[in-house]
């Protein structure tokens, strides 16, 4: 991994709390992600993993605490939310490609409208990224004509087109047929190798083992355990993590 332990902090959670009515979705989250770090967040369903990752680009608001990105408090009122979001790539479980636009137009939409890039440059960069995810031949296809794995790779290329310093992945392979999981993980691995800062909510424990710099284990809205993949998978320290891993391996 290119990640150096002394790298500067990129994302900091400080006492983050979120409630849905009486339901405590996130409880006292304090953690940080350094530049170039790959963090995998795992835990049972309903543990708040997706909610946590969605607070980082403010798809979810928080009620208490603070989240800093590159030193700036992202939940402050004065934040230019659109500008901020353009610096973070987000990949959804359900891809969320725009079905009325071609693959290439999906990718160039935000560069053209948000970054005001020139059309030619945006398309050229779009083609580069499609080539990177192995789908250059699908530039003029519509999302509905692609397989799930292909759609998710396009979604990753679409996020990368904004040249974000960090990428968030919210269960990127959970909606895929098993035979398509590999191609998406491959793209994510190559991003990690290139030093992209990443937070991934995923159930792919092999991916975590191979690529993550650290693993955060969540349960009931809390981060229960953090550690290197070796430590977490080899010797989980909390009973809940032990049970979670035992349940996983029994499947």
């Amino acid at each position: 991994m290119t990640h150096a332990p002394s790298a500067p902090t990129l994302i900091t959670f400080e006492g983050v709390n979120k409630w849905y009515g009486n339901y405590h979705a996130l409880a006292d989250i304090t953690a940080s992600v350094t530049k170039g770090e790959v963090v995998v967040i795992c835990g049972p369903s309903g543990s708040g993993k997706s909610t946590l990752i969605r607070t980082v680009n403010r798809l979810e608001e928080i009620q208490k605490g603070s989240i800093r990105f590159d030193g700036k408090d992202i939940h402050s009122r004065s934040m230019d939310i659109n500008k901020f979001r353009s610096h973070i790539g987000f990949v959804f479980q359900s891809f969320n490609l725009f079905p009325h636009l071609t693959v290439l137009d999906n990718i160039t939409l935000a560069p053209l409208n948000v970054l005001r890039r020139d059309r030619h440059a945006a398309r050229e960069r779009g083609m580069e990224l499609l080539d990177r995810v192995g789908l250059a031949s699908k530039a003029e296809a519509y999302p509905g004509q692609l397989s799930g794995g292909q759609q998710q790779r396009v979604a990753i290329a679409r996020a990368l087109a904004m040249d974000p310093p960090a990428m968030l992945f919210d269960e990127p392979t959970s909606a895929l047929d098993p035979e398509m999981v590999g191609e998406v993980l491959q793209v994510m691995k190559s991003l990690a190798r290139d030093g992209m800062s990443m937070m991934c909510v995923t159930h792919e424990m092999n991916f975590a083992r191979e690529v993550a710099d650290s693993v955060w284990f969540m349960d009931e809205g809390r981060i229960v355990e953090t550690g290197t993949p070796e430590a977490f998978f080899g010797n989980p320290s909390t009973p809940r993590a032990q049970k979670f891993l035992a349940d996983l391996s029994s499947h």
Partner: peptide, 24 residues
């Protein structure tokens, strides 16, 4: 997810309406 995906890319609410939501 259509609104969320577009907003996540940094598109404003009105840009999202015009380019993503209304055409569909």
């Amino acid at each position: 997810g259509q609104m969320e995906a577009s907003r996540s890319l940094g598109m404003s609410y009105l840009q999202t309406m015009r380019k993503v939501i209304l055409p569909q």
